[in-house]
Structures are given as C-alpha cells and as structure tokens.
Computed example of a mutant assay.
Amino acid sequence: MRYFSMFSGIGGFELGIEQAAADLGMTAECVGYSEIDKHAIATYEEHFTHDNYGDATLINPHTLPEFDLLVGGFPCQAFSIGGKRLGFEDTRGTLFFDIARILDARQPRFFILENVKGLISHDKGKTFRTILRTLDGLGYDVQWQVLNSKDYGVPQSRERVYLVGNLGGTPRPKVFPSPRPSNPYSTVGLTTEPAVARTLTAGGHSGGNHSGMTILELTGQRSQSQRLYDPAGLSPTISTGGASTGGAEVPKISVGSQIRRLTPIECERLQGFPDEWTIGSDTQRYKQCGNAVTVNVVRYVAGRVLAEATP
C-alpha cells in the first residue's frame, strides 16, 4: 500500500498506518507528505525521511508518485460559494479544495480524512454536505463516523469525524459503524478519593451526574485555563496548548498538595505517540500534540482500510 499524506503535522497518520500495517503483516510506504509548519516539520523529519511537497495549495498532482491511499487532517474553513452545486469548485479557496483536486487528478483507490466534530454542523451542515457531494462527484463511495479517542486506548476525550472513501466499483472497506471496544478509559480510573471527575465541566453540571463528580476551579472563570482536573479522570481534548499563551490552555491536575499542568510527554501519551516524539520548546510541543491526530484511532481506521487491500 503506497500512500500520500497531506497536512501531515508530526506524522500521526504515518505512525498509525505503520502500526496497522504491522498488525496485518504487510507494509505501507509513504511516497511523500505535505506540511508547512517549520516546528512540525522538524519533529516529522526526526522520525521519517519522506519527501516534503510543501504548501498543499501549490502541489501539482501530476508530479506526485503513484499512490493508492490519500490521508490527511485538513483545516475546516467556510466555503465561499458553497451550495451552488458546482462540484469541487464549491470548495475553491479552502484547503479541502486541494485534497479534492489531487483526488480528481490521481484517483487513488482510498482516502482517509480527519476533522473536528464541528465540521458536521458547520454553517448549519452546509459545509459537510458540500464535502460529501464533492467527494461523491469525484467518484468516491464515502462513509463517515465520529470517533472518540477514549475508546481506542488513551485517556483523552477527543471526538473527531473520520471520512473513508473508496473509488466507485471497488470493494467497500468495512470501517463504520465502528464497534465500541471495551476500554478502561471509558470510565474513571482507580482513585483514593470518594468522588472523582468523569467528564469534567465547569461547575460540575452534567446531566444529573453532579453528585458523582468533583471539580475544583482556580478562579470563577469558565475557560479551560482556569479548570483543575482529577488525574484519575479523562483528559479533556488536548488543544494546541497556547502557542500564544505559553501553554495556559494545557489541562492542569492536582498531585497531592500541588497543582501542575500536563507535561509535553503526557500530552504525547494522550495522543498515542511514544515519549519524546516531539521536539522544540514546550510551547511548540504542546501545539504539535494539539494539532495531531490520535495515533490509536488512525491505527484502527487504517487497519480496516488496509485489510481490504490485502490480497
């Protein structure tokens, strides 16, 4: 299986695909990637030697090597002329357009795309409908589902929508609906405290579960930076960590009488990466983790796609 990676960040798709291929006793070759953030590139090149095709908007698809699978977690943007039913022209001016034009030109057998859950409801659903219509117009049979990282072996509640496509007329990989695997991180871990936080919200109000929850706030504010989480619970979604706030948005936990934020290594673990995967300042490492895909989830999705491609 040869694949091309777009908006590659620190290589979460690459690592997940490697693991999935190893699970199946096969190999997967990355023929190139596309990334422009210099800090993410530094981390990526610490682990991989693939050619960087740079800015996705400038890629000439006809210069790319042959590949069977396109993967990428693309930024969500408003579509300037969405809804006019002009095929992928509806997406011009967005980064999804560059995925669409490469799919159009190269027609790989499969794709795997990842985005925030909010993509589904963005612009009252118009954005997502335009994406699905565009992919259908390019000849792909598309399936999708919102997956939560906590169901795939990491203690982080992180919901992301995954779209999987196969060219019309080819076998459809059995990816979704995804089974809900038994996972110790779906509930709170062991603790000596009589009540601990499950899915924490400011004030503890969560569908009648207030009595079974504990939350401390550093101030009366409702922002992520002002909350304190129990280390036995699930982590909230790891964000970019505050490239402009010095890590202020990184979740904070209480350890004995001390309060501290999660370390970059802990954030790597929450995303399924090996320790010390990221390089650079702590601020940049937090950002890299926040922008990454969860490796464990990619491992599952890619594994289902690769299984279909196995002879």
Score class of each variant (00 low, 15 high):
Gly118Asp: 05
Leu113Arg: 02
Val146Thr: 08
Pro181Arg: 14
Asn166Ile: 15
Tyr53Asn: 01
Pro184Thr: 07
Phe7Pro: 11
Pro155Ser: 06
Glu14Lys: 13
Asn52Asp: 00
Cys267Glu: 07
Tyr229Gln: 13
Ala78Glu: 12
Val297Pro: 06
Ala195Tyr: 05
Gly169Asn: 03
Gln143Lys: 07
Leu138Thr: 01
Val164Asn: 02
Cys289Ile: 10
Thr263Ser: 11
Ser8Gly: 08
Asp90Pro: 09
Pro177Tyr: 12
Phe79Thr: 11
Ile59Asn: 09
Ser121Ala: 14
Val175Trp: 03
Glu45Tyr: 11
Asp37Cys: 08
Cys267His: 01
Gly303Pro: 05
Thr94Met: 14
Leu167Phe: 07
Met26His: 02
Glu217Thr: 10
Phe74Ala: 05
Ala202Lys: 07
Asp98His: 11
Arg285Ser: 04
Gly165Val: 09
Asp282Ala: 13
Tyr162Phe: 15
Gly9Ile: 11
Leu306Ser: 06
Gln77Ile: 13
Glu46Pro: 01
Ala100Thr: 00
Val298Trp: 05
Ile112Ala: 12
Glu193Met: 12
Thr57Trp: 03
Tyr152His: 11
Asn52Trp: 00
Thr187Tyr: 08
Ile102Val: 06
Gly272Ile: 01
Ile279His: 10
Ser211Cys: 02
Lys252Trp: 07
Leu70Lys: 00
Gln288Glu: 09
Gly169Trp: 01
Glu193Val: 13
Gly54Lys: 02
Thr201Asn: 03
Asp230Asn: 13
Ala302Cys: 12
Phe74Arg: 01
Pro184Leu: 03
Thr192Ser: 12
Thr191Ala: 15
Val31Gln: 02
Lys150Met: 15
Asp98Leu: 06
Tyr300Cys: 07
Gln77Gly: 07
Ala292Tyr: 11
Pro194Asp: 05
Ile112Arg: 02
Glu89Ala: 15
Pro236Lys: 13
Thr94Cys: 13
Leu64Glu: 10
Ala40Cys: 15
Ala248Asp: 04
Met26Asn: 12
Arg299Ala: 13
Ala197Arg: 12
Gly204Asp: 04
Leu190Val: 14
Leu69Asn: 02
Gln284Met: 10
Ala309Ile: 09
Tyr162Asp: 01
Arg92Gly: 09
Tyr162Thr: 04
Thr91Trp: 01
Phe88Asp: 13
Thr187Gly: 01
Phe176Ala: 05
Thr27Tyr: 04
Thr94Arg: 02
Asp141Leu: 12
Gln19Thr: 06
Tyr300His: 14
